[in-house]
Computed example of a mutant assay.
Amino acid sequence: MTSTLPAGALVAAASPGTMDAMVPYTLEWNWPETPLIILAILVIALVGRWLLVRAIRRASDLAVDRATRRRREQGQNEPLHLARYAARAATMGSLLRSLTNVVISVLTVLTVLAALNVPLTPVLASAGVGGVALGIGAQSLVRDYLAGIFMIIEDQYGVGDLVDLGEATGTVEDVGLRVTRLRDGNGQIWYIRNGEIARVGNQSQGWSTATVDLPVDSTESSARVIEILDAVVAGIRDDPEFAKVLIDDPQVVGIQAVEAGRMTIRVTAKTRPNEQGGIQRAILDRGLQALKDAGVRGPRTLPPPPAL
């Protein structure tokens, strides 16, 4: 059985220059073909959404597992690091699921309208005009969201990282698709739009470097000073307190600079992310004490040149 239902809308079919001829369009309804077609469209949409959401959830779980294994291989088993990657994967999974729902819903509605013989050209044209207007009016918002998406995909930084974002430097407390929140060394909270971040300096990915410069008198024997400091860094290397912090053995690099009355010896150590502060203080404290006990003189303060 075939019937037509008035849709209550008019489509212009007039010749150029006239608006007299208006033709009403009708919905096509064939029983039982049309209900079966609509039911099939809905079933396909639901099954497709279920498969895509399951694939996204599976991919997110695999991403978390890979990140966890990689962090454990690097010796980073803190819950903060593992939670960071879990939150990143969960954010991406939520974003992809929302995008999947929107795309499938739009395609389903358009397919059902096409099955009912509804002309889609005016609908698509209106959607195109609306999309252009929205894009022009919300350029900064779109830029923020796109920057946030790529930032999360590329893992530029995460919660707990010490970062330099140009305008502010501090520890990341929250990462969103539009705004990043971080707290600087003075306790002040900064909210930075992702679209305004032009560069990112991350001090928490992989490892950090502890660098200590020890000044002595320029007339001292550099070989003797380096020998004393070698014994100091060997003691720090064997200290159980720093065993979990050090990634590699501390090294006495050698002479860093020679100035009037001053010679600077540099010591470096590779540490776990954001753990270099304690090593630096220990090397500086023990190094200065060892040099003092060995009778090594500190840098001289030369008198200013005579005035002309």
Rank of each mutant, 00 (worst) to 15 (best):
V252P: 06
A168T: 08
T209H: 11
I197Y: 01
G185V: 04
V258M: 03
S204P: 15
A234Q: 12
R224T: 07
Q251T: 11
V252M: 11
I192W: 09
D184A: 03
G166A: 07
T211C: 02
V245K: 08
A231L: 09
S218Q: 08
L182Y: 00
A168Q: 02
G195F: 10
G158P: 03
V233F: 07
L165T: 01
D239Q: 05
R224C: 00
A223D: 15
G170I: 10
D248K: 09
L246C: 03
L182C: 03
A198E: 14
D217F: 05
I236L: 09
E241Q: 04
I192T: 09
E259A: 12
I189D: 05
L182K: 03
V212W: 03
V216R: 13
V252C: 12
G185K: 05
E241Y: 13
G158H: 08
T169M: 01
S221M: 07
T180N: 00
I255F: 02
A198I: 15
D164A: 02
G185P: 14
N194F: 00
D164Q: 00
W207C: 02
Q205S: 04
G254M: 07
E227H: 11
L229I: 08
D213N: 12
T211N: 03
T209P: 02
L177H: 15
I189P: 00
D239H: 13
N194T: 10
E173D: 09
S204N: 12
D230Y: 03
S204D: 11
D249I: 07
Q205H: 07
D174C: 02
G160Q: 01
L182N: 03
V163K: 09
N202M: 06
V245F: 09
E173H: 11
V253M: 04
L246D: 12
E196P: 14
V253Q: 03
G254P: 01
T171Q: 12
D248H: 01
T219M: 11
T171V: 12
T219Y: 03
G235Y: 15
P240H: 12
I197S: 11
R237T: 02
R181A: 10
V212S: 00
Q256Y: 14
E220D: 07
V252K: 12
A234W: 01
I192S: 00
S222Y: 04
A210E: 11
D217H: 07
Q188M: 11
A223Q: 13
V232I: 04
S204Q: 08
Q203A: 01
A243M: 06
A234E: 14
D238Y: 11
A223C: 11
E241V: 14
I247G: 10
E241G: 04
A234M: 04
A257I: 07
S208A: 08
G166H: 03
E220Q: 09
P250G: 10
V175E: 07
S204W: 15
V232Q: 06
D238W: 13
D230C: 06
A257F: 00
P240R: 13
V212G: 00
L165R: 08
P250E: 05
G170P: 15
R183Y: 02
E173N: 08
G166T: 07
L182A: 06
N186V: 05
Q251I: 08
V245C: 06
V175T: 11
E196A: 08
D238A: 10
R181V: 10
G176Y: 07
P240G: 01
V232E: 01
V233A: 06
S222T: 04
E173P: 00
Q256I: 08
A257Q: 01
D161E: 06
